[in-house]
Design a protein around this nucleic acid. Structure first.
Length: 574
DNA sequence: GCCGTTTTCGGCCCGACTGTTTTCAGTCG
């Protein structure tokens, strides 16, 4: 069972307990455990087999037993019992804005509501407002939410690359306003998460009303819901909600820290502060001893007051960063400027949109020292594969490029065939400087076979790196079944690099796996996988962001090296 | 339900908003 599936079961159990009226701390405990399981970075099933799941923070004796039961029987007995009493459709009811577990439970008890359909019917018949604690307004709000398309399913999230440029443009435009003192993007966009649901912008202004007015008048803004001296809530033409919050410059650091989150990071930070008599909020830090609240203009000061190193936003996920910051042992994270070359890209020869020369020019202009041209191999399909003889011609053409200004390496992205063999004969691969091996077919193989397939490819002497190792497409396709623990172990054993594919729809390996890989001693490579010149320029920041979220330093990423040094690190040279 | 250089029991972040209530519970971020 995958960590995501186990986590899902505990999320559901938490919601069921919540609807059953359990004390909130029990519910929170299950949600925390679900997060710990999802982000474990190693197989929780394997941990359970070794009797080590309680090593996960937030997993104690009771939850460990439930994990065992889930793995053994496919379900959790307490969840089965709860489901007999609480219709699972109520969980969807709790996702209607304004309705939470308490009110959904009440609707179930008073009106027998078990689903969104029941809720709609009751609201339309005017029965909702008769329930104690509900009223005319509550019923109207439910009807309005349903009419607006709320259906109880979690709201779809946007891939970061669809929202981040919008947010950055808005921030830049606000900074140009004479009333702006400080403007900063916050929220999950600042933490560079894979997906986001809205944009948060924090500002300090000499004239708050003027800045809010400028915000509401921006061309990207479609509709403004709320606006005042404290900020505004709006939605863009693409349907992206944007919150602007304005705060006095003296407390800018507190609000920025608060709104950057994550919620879990802030919660843990505040819990720890309370033990020392400090109370952290978006307005400042209150000290029990003096009874005074002190505001801070910068985030650096906020963390310093709490006795911590500044924590880069990408690390603020409550994954150990608070403890590390207290002990002043946060890693120096890799930066975009550390990347010296890009080792995975395509041209018109396979399925790219730009020519070899155009990609070389774009890379040179971008300031790279080297790139590898890595077309798809012969069996790629869609008529875009490159047969061996064509690849040989391509190698010759690369070798004869005149004055490209950068080092251009001849490479391939070769398919790994279902049996784990490669798509080109060894004598063809021998002519190349760089070999990416990726899975593009037979995604439905069972985990054991899929993993064995990949491990066999990794044992090949000429495979330098595994491309987009898990095959996920964010929001569109799950990873194929793969035992990533074994892949990481094989990478360490063989000296095969693992890619962080920087395509913002992939970001694969993800942050959690990349961190595990680096901790195990594997070497990573961050590649754009560009299919056109503009994505060559644009993708890399998302890959670097994933690496930062994985706590990686530049040394742990191979393409921060100059090419001669990186060339010597390939396993064929060892 | 989890956790511990305050604790193996008694805590468990903070504040805004809403609607309904007659002083606050529930929801949200």
């Amino acid at each position: 069972m995958r960590n995501a599936d186990i986590a899902e079961a505990f999320e559901e159990l938490a919601s069921l307990y919540e609807l059953d009226g359990a004390v909130v701390y029990r519910v929170v405990a299950y949600r925390n455990a679900a997060k710990a399981i999802r982000e474990a970075g190693v197989s929780v099933e394997e941990l359970a087999r070794q009797g080590r799941v309680e090593e996960l923070a937030g997993v104690g004796k009771t939850i460990a037993e439930k994990i065992d039961a889930l793995l053994e029987t496919g379900s959790i007995p307490s969840a089965d019992k709860l489901k007999a009493r609480i219709p699972p459709g109520l969980i969807e009811v709790t996702r209607i804005p304004g309705l939470g577990p308490k009110r959904a439970r009440q609707l179930h008890q008073e009106l027998g509501i078990t689903s969104i359909a029941d809720l709609r019917e009751a609201a339309e018949q005017g029965r909702l407002k008769e329930v104690p604690g509900f009223g005319k307004k509550a019923e109207e709000n439910v009807l309005a939410a349903l009419a607006a398309g709320a259906d109880g399913r979690p709201k779809p999230r946007l891939v970061l690359s669809e929202a981040l440029p919008v947010g950055e443009e808005m921030v830049a435009a606000l900074r140009d306003q004479p009333a702006a003192v400080r403007v900063q993007l916050a929220g999950s966009a600042r933490r560079m998460t894979d997906t986001i649901k809205d944009l948060d912008i924090v500002a300090a202004a000499s004239d708050a009303a003027a800045l809010v007015e400028a915000f509401c008048g921006m061309s990207a803004v479609d509709e403004v819901y709320v606006s005042g001296e404290a900020g505004a809530k709006a939605v863009t033409h693409s349907g992206l909600p944007v919150d602007l919050r304005i705060v006095p410059a003296e407390a800018f650091g507190n609000l920025l820290q608060h709104l950057t989150g994550s919620g879990k990071h802030n919660e843990a930070l505040r819990t720890e502060a309370v033990r020392r008599g400090l109370h952290v909020s978006e307005y400042g830090i209150a000290d029990d001893e003096t009874g005074e609240t002190v505001a801070f203009a910068t985030e650096e000061q906020v963390y310093e007051r709490l006795g911590m190193q500044f924590i880069p936003p990408e690390l603020r996920e409550n994954r150990g960063e608070l403890e590390a910051a207290r002990e002043h042992r946060l890693p120096g994270l890799i930066e975009l400027g550390d990347i010296r070359g890009d080792l995975h890209m395509h041209t018109v020869l396979s399925d790219g949109r730009n020519t070899l020369e155009e990609m070389v020019d774009a890379a040179a202009e971008h300031g790279y020292e080297y790139i590898a041209i890595t077309e798809h191999s012969a069996t790629h399909g869609f008529g875009s594969g490159v047969p061996p003889d064509e690849l040989r011609l391509r190698v010759e053409r690369i070798r004869s490029l005149e004055g490209p200004g950068i080092t251009v390496l001849a490479g391939t992205e070769t398919n790994v065939l279902p049996d784990g063999s490669l798509d080109y004969a060894d004598d063809v691969l021998e002519e190349l400087d760089w070999v990416v091996a990726s899975l593009h077919t037979s995604f439905r193989m069972p985990e054991k076979e899929q993993t064995d397939r990949m491990l066999r490819a990794m044992e090949h002497r000429l495979v330098d790196v595994i491309g987009h190792p898990t095959g996920r497409m964010i929001g569109r396709r799950d990873s194929y079944e793969l035992d990533v623990d074994r892949v990481i172990a094989k990478a360490v054993e063989t000296g095969t690099f693992l890619e962080i594919n920087a395509n913002p729809n992939r970001r694969d390996l993800n942050d959690v796996y990349a961190r595990s890989a680096a901790e195990a001693g594997a070497m990573l490579v961050i590649d754009s996988d560009a299919h056109r010149a503009d994505t060559l320029r644009r993708n890399m920041r998302y890959g670097v962001a994933t690496a930062r979220r994985a706590w990686l330093a530049a040394e742990q990423v191979a393409n921060t090296r100059v090419w001669p040094e990186l060339a010597r690190m390939r396993k064929r040279e060892r």
